[in-house]
Nucleic acid binder design. Structure first.
Length: 353
DNA sequence: TCTGGGGTCCTTACTCTA
DNA sequence: TCTGTAGAGTAAGGACCC
């Protein structure tokens, strides 16, 4: 199940006057400041606006677009409502970020198409929002099925449809193939998913690495064994900040790092985790990005220790260019005092490769 | 000229230890 | 003691996802 233009749809729901207008959600909502598009309504997409595009570019493409800030709290609230509805239909549910979920419905007595219709109906009745549902024998194909008809779609894919429906698609449509791999594959003469499927396992592994080659070999044939993951512990917690204007002042970078570290430590305590490794990230004005990491003798959630480690990392980076972004991440997480830790919905798909 | 933020996983290089 | 090797842990960077 995949919500349709989720952030934009939520905003339109609470401001009905926006219905039918091109709406762009991203950053602070000011298209003249730094930020990217999180979600564009279908009307805005007609102007070429899409996710991850700089807001300034979106403004150029569509000066008539309505730009709104991201209201993550509101989207989370509605997301939880949706997940509750889905969980009631099948508790074998995997959260995939804020607007997607996989459901194993193979054990339900109703036929799948009936369940799919029930999902769409209950989500709409509960929230006023539409979603697209894909039904397939595994997560990979279900995801591709849900993308096939959007918005408000309901699509079936079986293994027997892979050749006809999936193979003609561009390589980029395969989950796990991003912009870099797309370029690489095209240079190798592979334009469609079928082109990948025509290659041998050995060739793909030689060109793209053992693990990723194996993944592409199977995925291009619609083969994907990964199970529904119902519980999940975070592996890292991070915060980062892009400055409105690139900064040359070391003090300002340090202040920002200290504040981000406070935030991360707060988040760790809230969720009940301690961390072993601290990583600092600096992105310079030319987008050159460096990271430095420090592993501590033992896990901790004490701000003083974490901050000291972060500053030790920062000290190993020569700030000879202006700084665009500063970030901090903690990893090697362990639930505190042997407690369980708070299990969370997974933030994004974990099994692309 | 533009390129966010919060995540996961993989690869490669290096170091330490058995 | 010297040499080689395997494995674990750490560090850095990169690709991808929502």
């Amino acid at each position: 199940m995949d919500m349709d233009a989720f952030f934009a749809s939520v905003e339109i729901l609470r401001r009905p006057e926006l219905k039918g207008k091109p709406v762009v959600i991203g950053g602070t909502g000011d298209p003249n400041r730094r930020g990217v598009v999180s979600t564009a309504s279908y009307e805005a997409r007609k102007f070429g606006v899409h996710s991850a595009m700089p807001l300034r570019t979106a403004l150029k493409l569509c000066p008539a677009c309505v730009f709104l800030p991201v209201d993550y709290n509101e989207y989370s609230r509605i997301s939880m409502k949706i997940k509750k509805i889905l969980f009631e239909i099948s508790p074998l549910m995997e959260d995939v970020g804020i607007d997607e979920a996989y459901l194993d419905i193979s054990a339900l007595p109703e036929p799948p198409e009936e369940t799919a219709r029930l999902i769409k109906e209950r989500v709409f009745r509960g929230t006023g929002l539409t979603c697209s549902v894909g039904i397939a024998p595994n997560k990979l194909l279900a995801k591709m099925a849900s993308d096939l008809q959007k918005p408000d779609g309901l699509t079936f894919i079986g293994f027997e449809d892979v050749e006809k429906l999936i193979w003609p698609m561009g390589v980029r449509k395969l989950h796990g193939v991003g912009p870099k791999t797309e370029i690489y594959l095209k240079e190798a003469g592979l334009n469609t998913i079928g082109d990948i499927a025509a290659k041998s396992l050995e060739w793909l592994q030689e060109q793209l690495g053992k693990s990723y080659g194996q993944y592409l070999f199977e995925a291009s044939r619609g083969i994907h064994e990964s199970p529904i993951i119902t519980e999940w512990n975070p592996k890292s917690i991070s915060r980062e900040e892009t400055f409105e204007l690139d900064v040359a002042d070391w003090q300002q970078v340090a202040r920002s790092l200290a504040s981000l570290m406070r935030d991360v430590a707060g988040s760790m305590r809230e969720s009940g985790y301690e961390a072993k490794t601290v990583t600092v990230k600096i992105r310079f004005e030319d987008f050159d990005t460096l990271t430095r990491a420090r592993t501590l003798p033992a896990e901790t959630d004490e701000l003083d220790i974490l901050r000291k480690a972060a500053f030790e990392c920062l000290g190993r980076i020569e700030l000879k260019k202006r700084v665009r972004l500063v970030g901090v991440r903690v990893m090697g997480l362990k639930p505190k005092n042997g407690a369980e830790g708070k299990q969370m919905p997974s933030p994004c798909s974990k099994d692309a490769r």
